[in-house]
Design a protein around this nucleic acid. Structure first.
Lengths: 340, 340
DNA sequence: GTGAAAGCGCTAACAG
DNA sequence: CTGTTAGCGCTTTCAC
């Protein structure tokens, strides 16, 4: 098919190879008539420049990498991944970038993949989805001085660019809403505590209580694992403490908590109010509808690509921290939507 | 960091560039002692060959593409995607291939992406996830004569390589199981009928009935959309026809159907037996546990990569059709596991 | 078995 | 404004 080269197009258009190159790269210094003629030939022949050649000489490939460090299981249970990927992929389409996808489940994978992602000249930049497993890789990549953006605040954010919401503030907003509804005995189901999201959302819970002078009670705090099953189990453990409201650090856990509450004959929100976090679309919306903090996961992807492009084009600037806003979506499970 | 070239390594090892190249590419014609010395230098310097240069001269990039043609919504609701992707990504790691990821939601995307995927020399081959939206692209790609494998049987499979299960047979097995349990009034909730999966599984249902001399009744056949909500609605429509068993063409729809059955006070499996299709892990397993056909989605990904590699290495052979086997997983919802 | 030399297709000075 | 020239870093004949 298109085994054409610049030279071929040049010949067909009666110009030199350089001129064709200029046309392709939108250099202003080409006469209009010539440009039109060249463009026509390109159009007719279906020519596309060889990207490898271009990458070789220009030292940039038009390709960025997405590194997803994941245990095999969490890859599926967590809808975060497809959303983030979608945002990134769409942004890449928009900016005419090719997206390389690297799944890292083991240390072995990491070593194997590293040469493919580390070296400038093949990947122009990298987005790493944050997560426990990835922290070592992030370190290595950052040392390799390749433009790097983390999706989600990493454990050690100092010298890194990342995009995330402010999970502390967002969680505090959720809990404050519960407080404003008159609740005092507010429990929380936290995420795993080895991970920034879990840590921050718990901190936000504590912050909100402190701000309103509500004493913290350790029996009102139970750790979950972001899954529905985990939320169910956590709520069962919480029930004896008789909370009047619960803030779950993910929608999945909130749903699990609602099931646990309902399974012992209590009602949401009348007996216990529930607020979640994420606002991802559910295959089956729960009853009652969940009040939750919405975070723009696709937006993370889009912004991550934009920041990365900036980093690529403008070199070693100080790391950028992009904090997007989470939004409280009030539905029925918190008991404030009396209209329902 | 590693701005080293073959030439540098050659100098450091006291050999010529060609020799280093031979070592890297495992040519047999290098003396052992020399090979060792070169390898040592490579090790110490952390050298990695420039992939763009290699791609330029060797006309192959070590990179394959995964094209996912998806409407924005189905991207999330369907767990098929992360599973397939995981299989493909792992196989790529295994074979030292880089995976390019292309999300195509619109005709615009298709046109934009086409140059990046069509031309030999940048991508060595492509895997396309089948689906309505992708059929046009598949046609174009196939004409571009780039090695191509479809994940899931395409609408027009004649000249294409693909990997899938035999959905007709698999569905027939599921329905036959219901028949062997003594059921006669067996309903089905089909998938969308503009898609091979929906068509084939319905055909399998009909085949099984025919084989056992059970007349088909149109009021026992309702179309769903693979979602839980769709399954729920479909089952509600099916209920008046008083089926004693139902085969749903996806687990999601099966779950929805069970909810619908239970919502009118009937029991699964005592009043109505249910069988699904997929056997994907669920965040919350349903009660009763679902009897279903398991299909190896990750396996599709792995095999697709293997077939693609074969195609890349061995050129224009006749298209390969890889049919993997689906397996009946008997649990509780069909009523045959009396031990429960 | 090893080195020298010729490109792969493109971009980017440098002349004109 | 356009053509000529020199590589980018690698693989691969072809000699030795």
């Amino acid at each position: 098919m298109s085994d054409l080269t610049l030279e071929d197009i040049a010949r067909l258009a009666g110009v030199s190879r350089s001129t064709v190159s200029r046309v392709i790269n939108n250099h202003p210094s080409v006469r209009g008539s010539v440009r039109t003629r060249v463009l026509e030939v390109i159009q007719n022949t279906g020519f596309h420049p060889n990207l490898a050649a271009r990458a070789l000489v220009s030292k940039c490939s038009g390709m960025i990498g997405l590194v997803v460090p994941r245990s095999v299981t969490s890859f599926f249970t967590d809808p975060y991944f497809p959303f983030l990927t979608q945002g990134i992929a769409q942004a890449c389409n928009q900016h005419n970038l090719t997206l390389g996808f690297f799944l890292v489940s083991t240390k072995e994978d990491e070593d194997k993949i590293f040469p493919r992602v580390s070296r400038k000249g093949y990947l122009d930049g990298i987005i790493v989805q944050s997560g426990q497993i990835g922290e070592g890789l992030i370190e290595r990549l950052n040392n390799a001085e390749i433009p790097l953006v983390i999706a989600g605040r990493p454990l050690q954010p100092e010298h890194l660019s990342y995009v995330d919401v402010d999970n502390v503030t967002a969680a505090a907003i959720a809990v404050s809403h519960l407080i404003s509804l008159g609740h005092q005995r507010i429990a929380t189901i936290t995420g795993p505590v080895d991970n920034t999201v879990g840590i921050d959302r718990r901190a936000g819970y504590e912050q909100a209580l402190a701000q309103h002078g509500i004493p913290m009670e350790s029996e009102l705090i139970v750790a979950g694992d972001f899954t529905e099953t985990g939320g169910y189990a956590a709520m069962k453990r919480l029930l004896p403490a008789r909370p009047r409201a619960v803030f779950a650090a993910s929608d999945g856990m909130a749903i699990g908590a609602m099931r646990a509450i309902q399974s012992v004959g209590l009602r949401v929100p009348q007996d216990i109010a529930v607020v979640g976090f994420d606002d991802l679309p559910m295959p089956t919306p729960p009853t009652p509808l969940l009040t939750t903090m919405r975070q723009p996961i696709q937006g993370f992807g889009v912004r991550a690509v934009e920041v990365l492009i900036d980093l690529i084009e403008n070199g070693n600037l100080p790391p950028r921290k992009v904090i997007m806003t989470a939004e409280l979506i009030i539905r029925d499970s918190c008991g404030s939507a009396q209209t329902h």
